[in-house]
């Protein structure tokens, strides 16, 4: 049998479904849109972001405008759909404004933390001596519970939104780095990395072109699941006077302020608490969906499975 006469063989899947060269983004997009749960999660997050951006236009009242006559009024009070808090401030408006700080203190530190952890974990896994040092330093951080560490750091730096965010980023780095380090240490042993060395791929390219796509999903999924804990930690810091200060509208602060009125007007604490829960769940669900759509092994099935038989956009390969 000669090479040239050998019939070319096609991959196992049928020809019927043949998406053209699609980018990762395409699959993330399709994966999220095709999954009803993830779709809801994405919509919720999008709405929150919009609320944060357009708060002044959306909120019926300024966040700190109080009408003492209507203190503690419950849901459905005329003009105040979600009721009023203990000072007579409109809860809906405060929730809308609160999305700003909640996203800023809960989501931005997670993103920054991941941005630092991913290169740190990759480099640590690649250079074992350096990695040993890095991970031992991380171990020191692990000795403290996450909340305690955040409190210590925030207390060292003093109150304020910026300092709180830095404290949260630093707190998050050890966790996310460990996730990336573990994933990268596994990847490092695989034959494709040795193949990359054999073809003279530079260390930098091995790490950031070959290995990165294989470890980033683990970090993204982890980040999505940690958002909830960070929102709650941020709220705790604010509660302790180490984060943003009342009367600023922030969901965590709102929840803790409502504590004292739990029996008189439960909605004051319950509504921002519910908002945090929804946010956290939205990120968790999105994380699951992202994991599937970032993985070439599962995402084709996802798209194929969900594509309606008549979906002819698939045919234009």
């Amino acid at each position: 049998m000669s090479v040239t006469s050998m019939a070319t063989t096609s991959p196992v899947p049928s020809q019927r479904f043949s998406p053209a060269r699609r980018s990762n983004l395409y699959f993330v997009w399709r994966g999220v849109l095709g999954d009803p749960v993830a779709r809801i999660a994405a919509v919720i997050i999008l709405l929150l972001v919009l609320c944060a951006i357009f708060a002044p236009y959306l909120a019926p009242f300024p966040p700190n405008e109080a009408d003492p006559a209507l203190r503690l009024q419950g849901l459905g009070t005329p003009g105040h759909l979600l009721g009023l808090d203990h000072q007579g401030r409109d809860i809906l408006s405060r929730l809308i404004y609160g999305a700003r700080l909640t996203l800023l203190s809960g989501v931005v530190p997670v993103i920054l933390g991941a941005a630092i952890s991913i290169p740190l974990g990759l480099i640590g896994a690649w250079y074992p001596r350096l990695g040993e040092v890095v991970m031992r330093v991380m171990d020191v951080f692990f000795a403290f519970p996450m909340a305690l560490l955040a409190i210590m750091l925030a207390a060292l730096m003093g109150p304020g939104l910026g300092n709180m965010m830095i404290a949260l980023v630093v707190t998050l780095i050890p966790y996310n780095t460990r996730v990336v380090y573990a994933a990268a240490s596994q990847e490092r042993e695989l034959a494709y990395i040795e193949a990359a060395k054999a073809m003279a791929t530079s260390d930098l390219k091995i790490l950031f072109v070959e290995m990165l796509p294989n470890v980033v999903a683990a970090s993204v999924v982890y980040s999505c699941t940690i958002v909830g804990a960070v929102v709650i930690t941020a709220a705790g810091l604010s509660f302790l006077g180490l984060g943003v200060q009342p009367p600023i509208a922030e969901w965590g602060i709102m929840t803790s302020e409502g504590r004292s009125y739990v029996f008189v007007a439960p909605h004051i604490a319950a509504l921002p608490g519910l908002a945090i829960t929804v946010l956290v769940m939205a990120f968790n669900l999105l994380g699951d969906s992202l994991r599937d759509s970032l993985d070439p092994k599962t995402r084709l099935q996802l798209v194929k499975h969900r594509a309606a038989p008549s979906a002819d956009d698939e045919g234009k390969a």
Binding site: L190, A191, Y192, E194, A195, P213, N214, D295, P296
Partner: peptide
């Protein structure tokens, strides 16, 4: 070099 495990020797992503 060509390895024993063909799938593992290719970058899956």
């Amino acid at each position: 070099i060509v390895f024993q495990d063909p799938l593992q020797s290719l970058n899956p992503r």
